[in-house]
């Protein structure tokens, strides 16, 4: 029940956001809101393995970037030469988003298969290492702009909607986000989700029960990578731009920060965290050029002063009703 209430409140807020934005004369909040949704998807996907599964990946920005580049590269070839001589480019969102998820998933399969042989801090570092390798790969990929990034001339098309209209784009993003969170809800509350949580708490016991831990963790890792890839594909559509900056390790750090800020291992935490982090960055940067100092201080206070991030704080303030 209480989850349903939280979901309803969040959904109502996000539906109302464009209208509030218009009413207060800050309609730029619309693209910020859409980007918040994209980052909420990314953070929630990472939270699947980090919060529920206890695997701290410091390289998830790699999948974010891969998703963005899939959209960018497909659009680049749309109507032009086919990619690698046989893959036709496309500008249809119904194709680009699933392809972005599949490609991210495949990359996650390779990285996960190798990384999951380690654990703890070594896992953090090895995922970081793979992300850095991909980062350097895209930086030196001259064909698609390298470090300068890849400009996408048009937002992906969907059912003949006018994707130039910011309101339309926002609600398309919102619908995709809602679908994503419904699927994520099913995953987290399935027996698979239960096993994942069990693996976090006591891997040895789960193994003794005959659960193939490695395989479960790998599946979770791939699912997580696919989610982050979807988020990257959305961000590329919103910015009409893809660049290696999207897979920089600072971006991986940002995703982790969003999760901690909102509440690790909670369903709605990453959404709250992503929104809070981006609002903070946006308004602080608008307020003073020394915004990193204030952002740093706020993060420090949150981590030292609260347990379980903003989500935990709200939960305690409302007597456990989130």
């Amino acid at each position: 029940m209480k989850h349903l209430l939280s979901a309803a409140i969040l959904l109502a807020l996000f539906i109302a956001l464009p209208f509030i934005a218009d009413a207060v004369g800050q309609s730029s909040l619309m693209i910020l809101g859409a980007r918040m949704l994209a980052y909420a998807i990314a953070a929630a996907s990472l939270n699947l393995i980090l919060g529920y599964g206890g695997m701290v990946s410091f390289g998830h920005a790699a999948f974010f970037g891969v998703g963005a580049y899939v959209v960018g590269i497909l659009a680049y070839h749309a109507g032009g030469d086919p990619l690698l001589g046989f893959i036709p480019g496309t500008n249809q969102m119904l194709i680009t988003l699933p392809v972005a998820m599949i490609v991210s998933g495949l990359v996650a399969l390779v990285i996960g298969a190798l990384s999951l042989r380690t654990g703890g801090v070594q896992f953090i570092m090895i995922t970081l290492a793979f992300a850095q390798m991909l980062f350097f790969f895209f930086v030196s990929l001259t064909a698609y702009g390298g470090d300068d990034g890849l400009i996408i001339s048009r937002t992906n098309a969907l059912f003949g909607l006018n994707m130039r209209n910011r309101m339309t784009l926002y609600f398309v993003t919102l619908v995709i986000a809602v679908l994503f969170f419904l699927v994520l809800w099913r995953i987290v509350h399935s027996s698979f989700g239960g096993i994942l949580a069990g693996l976090r708490q006591n891997e040895r016991r789960m193994s003794a029960m005959g659960i193939p831990a490695y395989r479960y963790k790998l599946v979770a890792f791939v699912l997580s990578g696919m989610g982050v890839g979807l988020a990257g594909a959305l961000e590329a559509n919103l910015l009409r731009f893809a660049s290696p900056d999207m897979m920089h390790w600072i971006k991986s750090g940002d995703l982790i920060i969003m999760i901690i800020l909102g509440g690790v291992g909670t369903f709605f935490g990453p959404i709250i965290g992503a929104a809070a982090f981006m609002l903070l960055e946006f308004y602080l940067a608008g307020w003073t050029e020394h915004w990193p100092l204030i952002l740093g201080a706020i993060l420090l206070v949150v981590v030292l002063g609260t347990k379980g991030g903003i989500g935990g704080l709200i939960s305690r303030l409302t007597g456990g009703r989130t």
């Binding site: 953090i124 982790i256 990193p292 100092l293 740093g296 993060l299 420090l300 981590v303 030292l304």
Partner: peptide
């Protein structure tokens, strides 16, 4: 000192915050 008992995630966030703070202090 407040982070010893915490998990790695809290340490990552807190020390990341310190990076932001120190960089900007040096700018100032």
């Amino acid at each position: 000192r407040r982070l010893y008992a915490r998990d790695h995630l809290d340490q990552v966030l807190a020390t990341f915050a310190l990076i932001l703070i120190f960089n900007q202090l040096v700018v100032l």
